[in-house]
Amino acid sequence: ELTQEQMNLLQYVMDSHVKNRLPQSLATRLILQEDMGSDDNFVFLTEMATRHVQILVEFTKKLPGFQTLDHEDQIALLKGSAVEAMFLRSAELFNRKLLERHTDVLEERIRKSGISHDYINPMFHFYKSVGELKMVEEEYALLTAVVILTPDRQYLKDKESVEKLQETFLHILEKICKRCHPDNPQHFARLLGRLTELRTFSHHHADMLMSWRVN
């Protein structure tokens, strides 16, 4: 069972996770706009990514303990986790159909964006592999917090404090996994395994952007 403190922490993180959703306006704009050329697509997806980062920062600021960290460490954590958190968030958008019927249009926009398929296929493969875990909203929110509070980010000075904060969320996530997937004791481990896959996106992201710009 979750302790009272863990319950409060989870509730607090969930409120902010739900609140910091991509604004519906952006999702509907995705559809209303007629068939965009690939350069409009570029602008649209770049705007979406920028919005993602702003939403990510709002979510992160509300993670209990984050604001007590050194300011430059806060920057290091966000810079180091932004791409991973964005792909995790996109996996949630796709798997929980948060854009309702717009999901397939978004997929089509991405496939026609001019990004090479060497990058796109692994992306949708990742969404599918995350989808198979049938994660509940609490798991997405907590896993995002775990990704952000990763102590081995570049330029991070105070690793111990970040490690302690991350552990808090890992303990809650482990209990949530046991509660929501009682028949699958390996579920928590498989969830953490996805973080390794997520890191590969971070590594390839800069090349992906470069090749996209060239196209």
């Binding site: 609140k19 604004p23 602008v43 770049t46 705007e47 990514a49 920028t50 980062v53 702003q54 939403i55 920062v57 709002e58 600021k61 300011h71 806060q74 920057i75 966000l78 810079k79 932004a82």
Partner: peptide, 21 residues
């Protein structure tokens, strides 16, 4: 537009400002 800023600039702005619209 914000999209022309680098990732770090967007993060710094968002940390200072408040995009909760």
């Amino acid at each position: 537009p914000a999209s022309n800023l680098g990732l770090e600039d967007i993060i710094r702005k968002a940390l200072m400002g408040n995009f909760d619209d």
